[in-house]
Design a protein around this nucleic acid. Structure first.
Length: 578
RNA sequence: GGACCGUUAGCUCAGCUGGAUAGAGCGCUGCCCUCCGAAGGCAGAGGCCAGAGGUUCGAAUCCUCUACGGUCCGCCA
């Protein structure tokens, strides 16, 4: 049950009633009516802006509407009071039994918080999509974790989610990879090689060179490139994708689909997508204006095939072919998204690195064109992460072969910490990842703080079990024995969970889940410590089994919500801190 | 020259798509364990929400301009 949705439905019902009674004029829309938790707890449990939103279209005073609405709402058993405040807010207090029902629902319904807002719509989330030229480095982790958590969130919100990885195995960088592996292959045959500019010197290719030797023996030694390039390219790509899959697994990521760029070449699929755009009169033969500002040295005006992305809000039309007649990177990307659209997705999400900023408009333009505006594409950019250790930033350099890998990160802080920390920030804000802070076990480390709350609840349950308190039917506990305002505040926070899920899913912002969990954990820690001053607030009441059960049911429901939330983020809930 | 993102407490960041007196952590000050894990909690100090206009009952939030920072700008992917 989603309490906020339920109460909002009640508000709408009352407003409809008021309309039919002639208190409100006909023809009002209630879309903007919101029911929210008030910022200040002193204002009650929930607040609605209905009166202020409707005042203008109804040509009435907000307070008049609010007072009439208050009378209607107060008649409902769930509402214990409805007060008009400020400019026309209506503050509601709910009956204590309502919170008890929510807690029972949390404890008995494993799907508490799941939403059907997605209505089973097919949505494709593409993320990572790193070039298959080596293991993943830290620069990839933020997008990887963000995309994965977003996919889980959308699944939780009722979408039919496909997690997809686009393998860039069609471009020139794969030739570079093949040549680099070939050098390692020669090395495996005892030759001394040099890694010149334009090759990857990374040690991770040594295994690939040896594996190639094991596969083909000396067949390619001393042979010209045209003999071995195609084979080595596909061999090396496969080997790198194995590494990538391992890296993803260590972050807890499992893709549903790996889509190969190469599969678009020589199969007519790029041509087909371009033809589709041509038939819509969106591809033309023309010349681009020279770029303003810094002018490339060798720039010359040239006629080429251009996509009319300006018709969809882009700043310039975009070329789909290079000077040598080969496709630009954009062309297979168009074909790839054409494929996604043809596969029947109702919505697409792409998670890109910040270096793809300039790519967003043209990609949205392409999808709008290909799907004739049927399929929305949301593009999320993962901003840069800077790594700090011992107060100093350390950088990555792929060319030098000294970049920090995903494995380094996971070895250092663990999967759970890496995931949670990356998800406590909005994806489009750059942030600093401080190894020293996140390995601390203190409030400075939000993962620990949330895990600790979860563990504390389990600690209580262990203690209660030792004390002989029966915990087998917490959902059946008499929750009217835990209605102190401090306890109700915790219940109210837990009851917000379904609402948070919907907001996070609607905005494609999984960080809201992490921040909410932090707040919820904070409520729990606060209540725990109230027990220091006020013995009646301790969870285990020595001489009162029924009260103990009620209080433990309350905190147990908090731990259940925390574990739901952590599972969306891909973080393991801890039952004990060590 | 242009595009996109950002600018909120000393520092790192939230702010629920326009609501009430702008929030949290760190740091600073002072309290709280004969008590289920103090790995916690409570309280205090600290703000011209970058600046200027505009929209309306109401703006950190929406619009315009300016400043600063980041990312990027055909023939890399």
């Amino acid at each position: 049950m989603n309490l906020f949705a339920d109460i909002r439905a009640l508000v709408i019902e009352c407003l409809t009633q008021m309309t039919s009674e002639g208190v409100l004029p006909d023809g009002l829309t209630f879309d903007n009516v919101a029911v929210e938790p008030p910022r200040d707890a002193a204002h009650g449990d929930m607040a609605t802006n209905a009166a202020m939103v409707l005042a203008k279209p109804a040509k009435m005073k907000p307070r008049d509407i609010a007072e009439a609405l208050a009378a209607g709402l107060a008649a409902d058993a769930r509402v214990s009071s409805a007060d008009v405040a400020g400019p026309g807010f209506l503050n509601l207090r709910l009956d204590a039994a309502v919170w008890g029902q929510v807690m029972k629902d949390v404890l008995t319904n494993p799907d508490f918080g799941r939403s059907d807002m997605g209505a089973g719509k097919k949505i494709n989330v593409e993320y990572v999509s790193a070039n298959p030229t080596g293991p993943l480095h830290v620069g990839h982790t933020r997008g990887a974790i963000f995309g994965d958590a977003l996919a889980s969130l959308l699944d939780y919100a009722g979408y039919d989610v496909t997690r997809e990885y686009y393998i860039n195995d069609g471009g020139g960088q794969v030739d570079v990879l093949a040549r680099s592996v070939y050098l390692r292959y020669l090395e495996a045959h005892g030759q001394t090689v040099e890694f010149e500019d334009g090759t990857y010197p990374g040690a991770y290719l040594i295994n690939a060179g040896e594996a190639l030797k094991a596969k083909v023996g000396d067949a390619y030694v001393g042979q010209p490139e045209d003999v071995w390039l195609a084979d080595v390219r596909s061999f090396a790509t496969d080997a790198m994708m194995d590494l990538v899959r391992e890296d993803l697994a260590s972050l807890g990521i499992n893709m549903d689909v790996f889509f190969s760029e190469k599969s678009l070449y020589g199969t007519g699929r790029i041509e087909q997508a371009i033809e589709d755009l041509k038939s819509k009169d969106l591809i033309y033969w023309g010349t681009l204006k020279p770029p303003k500002g810094k002018m490339p040295e060798d720039w010359k005006p040239r006629e080429q095939w251009l996509f009319k992305s300006t018709e969809f809000g882009d700043d310039e039309d975009r070329p789909v072919q290079k000077g040598d007649g080969a496709w630009t990177y954009f062309a297979p990307d168009i074909a790839y998204h054409f494929d996604k659209v043809s596969r029947g997705f109702d919505a697409l999400v792409d998670v890109f690195g910040a270096d793809h900023t300039g790519y967003v408009k043209r990609m949205k333009a392409a999808v709008a064109a290909l799907s004739e505006n049927r399929v929305p594409l949301d593009i999320k950019l993962a901003q840069i992460v800077r790594l700090f250790k011992n107060g100093e930033e350390f950088k990555m350099s792929k060319r030098a072969g000294t970049f920090i890998t995903v494995q380094d990160l996971v070895d250092e802080v663990g999967k759970d910490v890496a995931r949670f920390i990356m998800l406590t920030r909005k994806n489009d804000t750059p942030f600093d990842f401080d190894f020293d802070k996140v390995t601390e076990q203190s409030k400075d480390n939000p993962v620990f703080y949330v895990q600790y709350a979860h563990a504390r609840v389990h600690s209580v349950m262990r203690k209660a079990g030792d004390a002989g308190i029966d915990l087998s039917d917490l959902a059946g506990a008499d929750l009217s024995l835990a209605t102190h305002p401090a306890e109700m505040a915790v219940a109210a926070k837990a009851a917000e969970w379904p609402r948070v899920v919907e907001i996070a899913a609607r905005t494609n912002e999984p960080h809201r889940i992490a921040l909410y969990l932090y707040d919820l954990a904070s409520e729990l820690h606060g209540l725990w410590n109230r027990g220091n001053d006020d013995v009646s607030l301790r969870f285990i009441q020595e001489d009162n089994v029924a009260a103990s059960q009620a209080k433990i049911a309350l905190v147990k429901s908090v731990s259940v919500v925390i574990s739901h939330g952590l599972s969306i983020l891909g973080v393991t809930p801890a039952e004990e801190m060590r």
